[in-house]
Nucleic acid binder design. Structure first.
Length: 293
DNA sequence: CACCAGGCAAGCC
DNA sequence: GGCTTGCATGGT
């Protein structure tokens, strides 16, 4: 990969294992929106970014080299060799197919708190509505800033959300999840839970801590570990993953804990990456209940 | 063809 | 089994 600065843009050439559609549509994030010209605009931390791609050339618009090196490089996980990961996983025939479908997936380095709230909202919900609720949360309670002539909003802090009540939060139409969001904010502001405590815990202890929050169970806590804490040995199982695993490996119904232990045995420290390739493959090919015998 | 009723969607309690 | 909300779906 080569990095150039041109006008106010950062241009990456000869980039591999990187595809905007694969990265943003594999279920890990909710604040990136595809534009009519196939570029994406998203908000991360206190940055907004427009990013486009043509083959092995990627452009980050109106961004300094400093911000790229200090922030976006890490966010897009550009220091990791995905070719090596894919070569290992491709030894499995199912993963080989899944990787051919979403070869450009990368695991984004996301914020723990944002993952906590986002995946609470994801429970029993669909992606367009998840995105709508999160967007409304930010617009109503985040801080406003400008980028390329448009207004964007940061993700509200635990302190900001903890200062709200259920009536305030009703405006985002999260439904029964609003009380869970408040509980999460209270536990993060009281430091009953915080990033440092989580990062100093092993997977089991971190999950246990997260699951003291109302609205966070096994699946949501696994998503927080994988997407917010880089715990790549976790394998979140939602209905899509359950279906594709049953369809490709078992040919019948399975219990979720059995699917998890099967995957952790099979993919080891790479099972978080495997999960993303499988999720994208399942969604792209609409592997649904009808596909299962 | 418009309209409505019932089902259901990245789970959790 | 219930939970909020919004929406695609099929029936009227």
């Amino acid at each position: 990969m080569n990095i150039y600065q041109k006008n106010n843009n950062i241009i990456l050439t000869d980039i591999h294992d990187f595809d905007l559609y694969h990265i943003f549509e594999c279920g890990q994030c909710f604040r990136w929106d595809k534009q009519d010209d196939d570029s994406y605009i998203g908000v991360v931390a206190n940055y907004a970014l427009k990013i486009s791609q043509k083959d092995d050339c990627v452009t980050l618009y109106d961004t300094s080299l400093e911000d790229f090196e200090n922030f976006w490089f890490g966010y897009f996980d550009l220091d990791r060799d995905y070719s090596e990961i894919k070569n290992t996983l491709k030894k499995d025939v199912v993963l080989n197919t899944a990787i051919n479908s979403g070869q450009g997936i990368r695991l984004l380095k996301q914020d723990i708190w944002e993952c906590v709230v986002s995946f609470i909202i994801s429970a029993s919900n669909n992606i367009p509505r998840i995105k709508k609720i999160i967007s409304s949360l930010c617009q109503n309670f985040g801080d406003e800033f400008e980028y390329m002539g448009n207004t964007y909003y940061t993700f509200p802090t635990p302190q900001k959300i903890a200062s709200l009540n259920l009536e305030d939060l009703a405006i985002i139409k999260a439904g029964f999840r609003d009380k869970y969001i408040l509980d999460a904010a209270r536990k993060f502001t009281s430091n009953e839970i915080n990033n440092e405590l989580l990062e100093n815990s092993d997977n089991a202890a971190a999950k246990e801590m997260l699951m003291t929050i109302n609205g966070i169970g096994n699946k949501v806590s696994d998503c927080i570990l994988l997407f917010g804490m880089s715990r790549f040995d976790t394998f979140p199982v939602d209905v899509w993953i359950k279906r594709i695993m049953e369809y490709c490996y078992f040919d019948n119904k399975q219990k979720i804990p059995d699917i998890i232990s099967f995957s952790q045995d099979k993919f080891g420290v790479l099972c978080g990456f495997a999960q993303q390739y499988l999720f994208f493959y399942a969604r792209e090919n609409q592997i649904d209940a009808k596909s299962i015998i």
